[in-house]
Every structure is written in structure tokens, then in C-alpha cells.
């Protein structure tokens, strides 16, 4: 094992470690987002409610916005667009999915919270965004969201906005998808 071979093997080991590190960055990023709440990533698994008294002194306005991503003939509406809650209290809000397309399909609502720090204190007990929804043609589905803003929400946060974007779910890789479906348009 000459000096050169020892150096080369050590360098190759570091190389492989860095390549694995690049892929480890993906889960690391998720963990980092959970801890610091950057990017408004919200827990996408059901969480237990924190049982503590309701903080009557503060009222937080929570706004809901729904957006339709391209390619899915569905609509997501929120019945009451804005609620005023006390930190600590659990609140239920009703959303409605309608599939106004002619075929059944799978869709998913992806949540995002602003200000992003608020996502640390937003606990979602039940939410339609946890799993993919299946709707038949013309079907309408009412889905509740039960959430709780924990008491330790920093007091400089007075308004929280929760945005849901509706995306189609299909396992066809992007490359094989026809770029335009308008009849006559070359694909």
C-alpha cells in the first residue's frame, strides 16, 4: 500500500461520504424544517391536541386560501374564509372538494402556512391534507380541518394564513406526460 494508494483510498472514502451526504440532505432538510419551521412546512400526520387552558386574552385571525393547481378538474372551497381563534382552543373549519371533471381521479391538497414560524405552533388534529383524496366524476366531498394553535404561539404573531394548493396525483413520470392535451396540438 504505497503512500499514493493510501491517499487515494482516503480521498475516495471522503468522496463516497459526500455523495451519501448529498442524499442525506433531503431527510435532514425535513427535520430542519420541522425544528425551525422554515418554509411553512406543516406536520402532515395527525397530532394529538395539547390539553391546556385556552388563552382568552389573545385573538388570532386565521385566514384560509385555496388554489387550484393546473391539470386537475377539481375545486376546493372553504366555507368560512376567516376565523378568529384563541390560542389553545381547537377549531373546526369545513372545506368542500368538488370534481367537476368527467372522469374520476386522485388529488391532494398541499398545505403551507405563513408566517412560516407559525407552523411550529399549528397542530392539526384531523386534516384532509394528510392523504390523497379520490373523487368520482361530479362527486362533492365535505372534509373538516380541526386544528389548534398552541398557547406558546409568539405574541407578535396576530394573523396566520393557511394556503391549500390542489394538485393532481398520478404516478406517470413527468417526461412521458403529453405536454398539451388540446386536440390537434402536436404532443
Amino acid at each position: 500500500m504505497t503512500g499514493v494508494q493510501r491517499t487515494v483510498t482516503r480521498t475516495v472514502v471522503v468522496l463516497l461520504a459526500m455523495f451519501v451526504f448529498a442524499f442525506a440532505l433531503v431527510p435532514l432538510y425535513d427535520v430542519f424544517c420541522r425544528i425551525t419551521g422554515i418554509n411553512g412546512k406543516v406536520e402532515n400526520t395527525a397530532q394529538a391536541m395539547v390539553r391546556d387552558s385556552i388563552d382568552e386574552s389573545r385573538v388570532i385571525t386565521v385566514q384560509f386560501v385555496t388554489r387550484a393547481g393546473a391539470g386537475l378538474p377539481w375545486k376546493l372551497e372553504v366555507l368560512n374564509r376567516q376565523v378568529r381563534v384563541h390560542p389553545g382552543a381547537a377549531t373546526e373549519v369545513h372545506f368542500a372538494f368538488t370534481n367537476h371533471g368527467s372522469t374520476a381521479g386522485w388529488g391532494r391538497a398541499v398545505p403551507s402556512v405563513s408566517p412560516s414560524e407559525a407552523s411550529l405552533y399549528m397542530r392539526k388534529i384531523t386534516c384532509f391534507c394528510f392523504q390523497e383524496q379520490r373523487l368520482a366524476a361530479g362527486e362533492r366531498l365535505e372534509a373538516p380541518l380541526v386544528f389548534q394553535l398552541t398557547r406558546d404561539l409568539p405574541d407578535d404573531i396576530k394573523t396566520v394564513t393557511l394556503v391549500y394548493t390542489l394538485y393532481p396525483v398520478d404516478d406517470k413520470p413527468l417526461a412521458t406526460k403529453a405536454t398539451s392535451v388540446v386536440p390537434g396540438g402536436e404532443t
Partner: peptide, 11 residues
């Protein structure tokens, strides 16, 4: 109405 996913045609 629904646009095309993966293409610059929005809903």
C-alpha cells in the same frame, strides 16, 4: 378551466 399540469397552461 383546468389547465395542463407540467405545462405553462394554468387553471
Amino acid at each position: 378551466i383546468n389547465g395542463v399540469s407540467g405545462a405553462p397552461m394554468p387553471a
